[in-house]
Nucleic acid binder design. Structure first.
Length: 524
RNA sequence: GGGGAUGUAGCUCAGGGGUAGAGCAAUUGCCUUUUAAGCAAUGGGUCGGAGGUUCGAUUCCUCCCAUCCUCACCA
């Protein structure tokens, strides 16, 4: 794979041969590790007298890691190695590790992995280090790493020189990015802590973790184009899930009252700094509760995630300070529109809303203009979304925005029937979207469990291809049957994990919080 | 998909119609508490790819590829 012409690689292959000639296996099978860099540094006691220093010397530890910096000084060598928890300096003297090991050491490079046994000491210049009494090569690297140098200034500031910064290479070769860029590792550490925190909060609330299919014969639960694949033996078309919502509701029907699932969803859409074709969502469903309960739990989950991963609810995202502390504002979509524009969209005729939008130069798809509800939702997106920096729940969307959500409890069933036939009346549903930094961070409903209304709304969606879009959502008859069997009053929530992690790690692009974001293949 | 920018050594970058530049890394030598180690010497390039203009292209032109930004798309 790597170019054989490359001088650096050729050189390393020669070193590899020399090591073998010296009778040393460059790829041994194991090394017993007794300490990590972090443990060593945090537990080091500076010996004050000779006796303690002797004790220290008798207390041998074993550590392993990748060489990330090496300074040779003739018959002594300093190197920094990096292990899972950090970095530490190793001091190796020919007299201590022996002739053969020192010969091997001379054949090592940045990127090689070594193990060392030795005692902890503090160098003249004050750095806690391991004075090696033994060194073992654990893995010889033949592909050169970028050489990144760190300088600690007198004021204690860290300056990184020649950082590995090419974003394309960083994403394509994330393993190198992780070795070389400390902050990248930290971003993903936070990601894992956020996920653990969300699970912990849900578990505390008695939710259980479940698994639903990634490969589906019918896709649904969201409005997005799917990835299509095929099963060879069965000879059928399959879709990668765009959402797991319809399956989690089936589990509620089946009697699991509180379920959650972390999933990759796959959406065949454009890619930008907040969209990756596969992304992580956690969805949870709770029986005998409504969207007000979901708002309570949502803000608790986010607050806990921030506290558990960062120890604070105050974050800075790209220069904007955001406070995630509970409670968050809860605002009706139409109220936000009113306070922003002065328009009482509920009670004004559709034609006047359209006039207003024309005046404001808001482009509107001709196919949407027949639906007052969709026009209101669009107006909100165009005019109001940009202001939603601090956490806020936007509630009570027009029914046309989703077929899976229960109408507000204020309506009688009769009212709903009557209003449906009147284009000037909009039915609103018990839905909320949490917004932070102008982003939708999730989506939640008081779930629709009226099987007749559910059927009606899904059929409508199928008919109009949902708001005039090209793709037609297939009807999921089995899901309808599940609702007919009877789903208890339920609320469900989806939370976009990647975007949450972006906020908490101050990451500009979603690609910075996904280990291996999708990249186009390179031509040979 | 539209528009803009970028692509030069392993890494970070300069340059520019006539033999390709720097720092770090590499190689050789000296150096047993150094730390962006140091000193001296040396090697390293299909200048993203394919065409075109030209006596001559890495540089100018066209197309292609990849990446980033932006718009469109996207609950």
């Amino acid at each position: 794979m790597q170019s054989e012409q490359n001088e650096l690689i050729k050189r390393r292959l020669e070193e590899l041969e020399e090591i073998k000639k010296l009778g040393v296996n460059p790829y041994p099978h194991n090394f017993k590790v007794t300490a990590s860099s972090k443990e060593i540094i945090s537990s080091f006691q500076d010996p004050e007298n000779d006796e303690e220093r002797e004790n220290q010397k008798n207390n041998l530890i074993r550590i392993a890691g990748r060489i990330i910096a090496i300074r040779r000084m003739g018959k002594a060598t300093f190197c920094h190695i990096k292990d899972c928890e950090g970095r530490i300096q190793i001091y190796l003297r020919k007299d201590d590790i022996g002739e053969l090991s020192y010969k091997i050491l001379k054949l090592l490079d940045i990127g090689d992995i070594i193990g060392a046994e030795g005692f902890v000491f503090r160098t003249k210049t004050g750095e806690i280090s391991v004075h090696a009494t033994e060194m073992k090569l654990l893995t010889k690297s033949i592909y050169p790493l970028p050489v990144v140098k760190e300088e600690i200034t007198e004021s204690g500031e860290k300056i990184v020189h020649d950082a590995f910064a090419d974003v394309e290479l960083r994403y394509r070769q994330r393993y190198i990015d992780l070795i070389v860029n400390e902050n990248v590792r930290n971003t993903f550490r936070i990601r894992m802590e956020v996920i653990r925190s969300i699970k912990n909060t849900l578990e505390r609330h008695k939710f259980i973790e479940v698994e639903t299919p990634t490969l589906q014969t019918i896709y649904g639960g969201a409005n997005a184009r799917p990835f299509v694949t095929k099963h060879n033996a069965l000879g059928i078309e399959l879709f990668l899930r765009i959402s797991n919502e319809l399956f989690l509701k089936r589990l509620i029907v089946g009697g699991f009252d509180r379920v959650y699932e972390f999933v990759k969803d796959f959406r065949n859409e454009g890619i930008d700094r907040t969209h990756n074709p596969e992304f992580t969502q956690v969805e949870w469903y709770q029986a005998y509760a409504d969207y007000n309960d979901s708002m309570d739990l949502f803000e608790e989950i986010i607050e806990n995630a921030a506290m558990d991963s960062l120890g604070t609810t105050v974050i800075n995202y790209q220069g904007t300070e955001i406070n995630l502390k509970r409670p968050w504002k809860r605002l009706k979509m139409t109220e936000v529109i009113k306070s922003k524009t002065g328009l009482d969209v509920v009670n004004m005729p559709l034609s006047e809303i359209l006039d207003y939008m024309k005046k404001k130069n808001i482009d509107i798809d001709a196919r949407l203009t027949k639906s007052k509800g969709l026009v209101i939702a669009l107006l909100f997106e165009e005019v109001c979304e940009g202001d939603l920096i601090q956490p806020v729940f936007i509630t009570d969307h027009p029914i046309e925005t989703t077929p899976l959500c229960k109408p507000l409890r204020d309506y009688s069933l009769e009212q709903i029937e009557n209003m449906k036939t009147d284009p000037e009346h909009v039915i609103f549903v018990e839905r909320f979207e949490p917004y932070i930094n102008k982003w939708e961070l999730g989506n939640s409903y008081t779930e629709l469990n009226d099987p007749l209304l559910q059927k009606c709304l899904l059929e409508e969606q199928e008919e109009r291809g949902r708001g005039g879009e090209e793709e037609i959502h297939p009807m999921d008859e089995d899901f309808l049957r599940a609702i007919e069997v009877g789903m208890p009053p339920t609320t469900g929530v989806g939370l976009g994990v990647d975007r949450l992690v972006m906020l908490l790690t101050n990451s500009y692009s979603i690609r910075d919080v996904i280990f291996f974001p999708l990249m186009k293949p390179l031509d040979k």
